[in-house]
């Protein structure tokens, strides 16, 4: 088990569109300040941003837990929301349950979860319908070296 160096938890509120993305920006700032390779920062920020948007669009509330270990940037996004009925469908590019309103704002193209999976070295998705969804990811610090 790699030593945990840093842990931060951020709260995300559903429907909070004007603040959406701020936590991802904060995580980006911390990673940049730590001089993490910019490609790795980019991947972690895409994960944080897409996951944060999912919480904002679909859930009531949620948390982003950001853990830095000696080996990886870990992001765990857990929400209280409707849950996902068909995990496989949700991971298909282009599949989306977004409303027209969300699409008008430029979201809901069915790229969120697939994008998260693409950018993560480790990816785990669990969900319970009516309760919530948890996405756990790791971006390994060595993976771009």
């Amino acid at each position: 088990m790699a030593e945990e160096l840093l842990r931060k938890t951020y709260e995300v509120h559903g429907r909070d569109f004007d603040k959406a993305g701020e936590n991802a920006t904060e995580i980006k700032r911390v990673l940049k300040e730590l001089n993490i390779d910019s490609m790795l920062v980019h991947r972690a920020v895409v994960i944080a941003f897409e996951a944060e948007m999912n919480v904002v669009m679909y859930a009531t509330k949620g948390t982003i837990t950001f853990i830095l270990t000696e080996e990886a940037i870990e992001l765990e996004i857990a929400d209280e929301g409707p849950g996902i009925e068909d995990l496989e469908m949700a991971l298909t590019e282009g599949f989306s349950t977004a409303t027209n309103e969300m699409r008008e704002m430029g979201f809901g193209f069915g790229m969120g979860l697939p994008n998260i999976r693409k950018n993560a070295d480790d990816f785990d998705l669990t969900s319970e319908v009516g309760a919530g969804t948890t996405v756990s990811t790791k971006v390994r610090l060595e993976s771009n070296a």
Binding site: L5, L6, V30, E33, L34, N35, I36, L68, E70, L141
Partner: peptide, 8 residues
């Protein structure tokens, strides 16, 4: 990395 985390 450890040193930088400590600084933060």
């Amino acid at each position: 990395l450890k040193e930088r985390v400590k600084r933060i």
